[in-house]
Amino acid sequence: MLDIISFNPFRVKIPFLLDIIIISDSEQIKKIETSGNVDRLHTYDTASLPWWAKIYFRATRFHDSKRDLWFCALESTSNPSYEQRRAYLEEKVATGYSEADVKRIAELLNKNAEDEVLAYEMVQIVNHRFFEKEIPSTITKAAENTLQSIGEAILPWKYIAATKAHSQVIDYCAENLPDNVHIIDAGHHNIGEVVKTTTGALRTLKNNLDKSVEEIFTSNPLTPQAPRIAVKESNFDGLLSSPTIPGKTVFLFKIGKAAIETQDINFTFSTGSSERACVFKDFFLEFMKDLQQELRQTKSQS
């Protein structure tokens, strides 16, 4: 039977089938995250993860079920490959962007270019450092169709389109990235992130030139939620009326809501601290600040 245990936090538990806890409160997120009782999803082998997680993530930019690969942010730090993969991403991101990149995006925004055009150009700026060549528009278009939220997975036509798009993008990455590069970390995730998130962020920036970049992207966060999985049994000092089940209970941290509530940029890029923040955090903020300045200048000259 359906067992809704509590509403703050909200938990849906169907014995032997489903156990999801949704956390929106910023202090609760930080408490659970730092407790040592939860970890990233792929701390468990893919085969042992909850059934719904396997179904959902195989149609997203975070996982490739064919090759059993997961995005770096969903790996536990105990994974032997984690440190090397993170270091590679940091090294590549540190190459930055050019003034011409900023001016090109500003020009497109001022011309009210379509999202598809903006997405294509931003993908080149972000992903050329990994592929060392232009990513075709067929791939940037396909990336738009991968799943962004769990709710989308219940729509059969959307799920089918997402799995098809996922295969198209991941196969392109496998064929065009160097052999020693993780195709989710450097390829599929970054392409999808730009297409599905950054493009909208560009328009949000243009519409808020009078505000600081940090204020804009705490009020309009980029990532709505971050999953964690229980690794120890716990009720978190009475926060839950019944304990978590290791390997079965999944938390969905609503970091987007927490960012809005706290106006803390660390919730936009992480779970309330700088630890394991998005590797593109500094790149994103600096690019947006330079872009904002360029847009202000062109606006004053018009």
Rank of each mutant, 00 (worst) to 15 (best):
V195W: 02
K232R: 10
L155E: 13
E233R: 13
I170H: 11
I216G: 05
F236L: 06
I245V: 15
G238C: 08
S241P: 08
S273H: 03
F280E: 14
I160Y: 14
I170W: 06
K281P: 02
K257F: 12
A201F: 05
P178G: 15
F251L: 06
N220V: 13
T218E: 07
K164E: 07
A277V: 04
I229M: 06
S242T: 09
I184Y: 01
T199P: 01
L155F: 12
E261V: 09
D264W: 00
I183M: 13
I245R: 04
A201I: 05
I260C: 14
K206R: 10
A161V: 14
T163G: 07
P246Q: 06
F217S: 00
E215Y: 14
I154K: 09
H188E: 10
A162I: 03
G187C: 10
H188F: 14
H182M: 00
K206A: 14
S274P: 05
P246K: 08
S212F: 09
T197C: 07
K232V: 10
D179V: 14
T198F: 12
W157K: 15
F253A: 06
L177C: 14
P156L: 06
F269G: 01
T271G: 04
G187M: 05
T249G: 04
D264N: 06
T262K: 04
S242M: 07
L222W: 05
S242D: 05
D210C: 13
F251W: 03
L209W: 10
N208E: 08
T268A: 07
F253S: 04
Q168K: 15
Y172Q: 04
P224Y: 10
V195D: 01
K281I: 03
A153I: 10
N180M: 12
D282Y: 10
K257L: 15
K158Y: 08
E261T: 14
T199R: 02
G187A: 09
N208P: 12
F251Y: 07
G200M: 00
A186Q: 01
A277W: 03
K158R: 15
R228I: 02
P243E: 03
K232F: 07
P178E: 14
I170P: 08
A165F: 03
C173G: 11
A174E: 15
A259W: 05
D185S: 04
